[in-house]
């Protein structure tokens, strides 16, 4: 591909579709990370949970017909997703138990889970398929896609709403965008969400008004595990329908970066996740050019740094403007006196 064709593809409707697709497995774990962070029990095991869910989703989706024959075909992907999510929740429960019951450090507990997940998935995959690289020998199903009717024939709009090939987005992509609104509603408009934020900000104060801090933190961790697991399912049962060793490729950590870059709120986190998604999409497009891949993989981190710098420069400019305004006011007051 030439540079021009790449440029053209970046400024096309199809590219927006790619961004939406690439953002999905960042938005979901980011929402999970946000919830856990706001509850004061940041879950850095998003990566491992995604990986585990992705793996079990594929395995159960593919081997389901063998283990439980006779069900309608559409059931198996859902069964896979269910088991994948359950696996993610069990891992989260382990973190929650070690941290909340036994007093282990939440970061260390999660770190252990990440290591366990990256090795454990490969181990079981090898036992099941004899392959250490991917499950390409298994015929695994995809979660259904949703095609929005009527818009397909409209140029541009059709591609934005139904993907570049007009095959629709995976149902989990819809779940991801819906989750942003739901998480917002949960955090700011429900009692439990309010308790969650209170616990994260001042646990002693929350306890003193009778809020059960431990219970709230259990719930927050489990919600983060659930959302991360959905992100994992999206990786292995969406656009791709197989599991590859370490296929999350750091998305669980990028999701955490999105939480902080997004100023620890749902909308900001969504925007940050979209920026990262765009960087990923760009990375994929430029990969077709004859540019060293090391340079291209630097795009997402550079985008992060650039975003942080811009944010801080703007804040400082704001502060300087405030100070200037004040000085001018003082000077004019003195002239009057």
């Amino acid at each position: 591909m030439t540079f021009e064709t790449v440029l053209a593809s970046i400024f096309s409707a199809a590219f927006i579709a790619t961004i939406i697709r690439a953002s999905t497995p960042i938005i979901l774990p980011a929402m999970g990370g946000l919830i856990s962070e706001l509850a004061g029990v940041i879950n850095i095991a998003l990566e491992g949970i995604m990986l585990t869910a992705a793996f079990f989703g594929v395995v159960v989706g593919a081997l389901g017909p063998e283990w439980l024959p006779g069900l309608p075909v559409w059931v198996y992907p859902w069964l896979g997703a269910l088991v994948g999510v359950l696996a993610g929740l069990i891992l989260t429960l382990i973190i929650a138990f070690f941290h909340l019951e036994l007093g282990a450090d939440v970061i260390l507990a999660a770190l252990a889970i990440n290591i366990l997940a990256s090795g454990g998935t490969v181990f079981i995959m090898f036992a099941l398929t004899g392959d250490k690289g991917s499950t390409s020998t298994l015929a695994s199903p995809a979660m259904p896609s949703i095609i929005i009717p009527f818009v397909g024939s409209i140029p541009v709009v059709g591609q934005i709403f139904n993907g570049e090939n007009l095959t629709g987005y995976n149902i989990i992509t819809y779940a991801a965008f819906l989750s942003v609104a739901l998480v917002w509603l949960f955090l700011y408009r429900t009692r439990l969400g309010t308790h969650l934020r209170a616990v994260g900000e001042n646990p002693v104060a929350a306890a003193s008004v009778g809020i059960d801090v431990k219970r709230v933190q259990y719930i927050a961790l489990l919600m983060s595990g659930f959302l991360a697991a959905l992100g994992g399912i999206n990786l292995s049962m969406g656009y791709l329908t197989l599991f590859q060793t370490n296929m999350t490729a750091g998305r669980g950590y990028i999701a955490l970066a999105a939480v902080f870059l997004g100023n620890r709120n749902p909308l900001g986190t969504l925007i940050a996740a979209l920026i990262f998604g765009a960087a990923g999409a760009l990375e994929a497009q430029l990969g077709t050019l004859n540019i060293p891949s090391q340079l291209i993989t630097m795009i997402p981190p550079i985008v992060t740094i650039a975003a942080l710098v811009i944010y801080n420069v703007r804040r400082q400019a704001q502060m300087a403007a405030n100070a200037r305004k004040f000085q001018e006011k003082m000077e004019s007051e003195h002239k009057v006196v």
């Binding site: 009692r191 309010t194 308790h195 934020r197 209170a198 900000e201 001042n202 002693v204 104060a205 929350a206 003193s208 008004v209 009778g210 809020i211």
Partner: peptide
């Protein structure tokens, strides 16, 4: 024992909203 980022009303009803 207050939550600094919450409003006064939110702090008063916290736990029994």
């Amino acid at each position: 024992m207050l939550i600094p980022s919450f409003t006064i009303a939110q702090n008063i009803v916290l736990g029994h909203e």
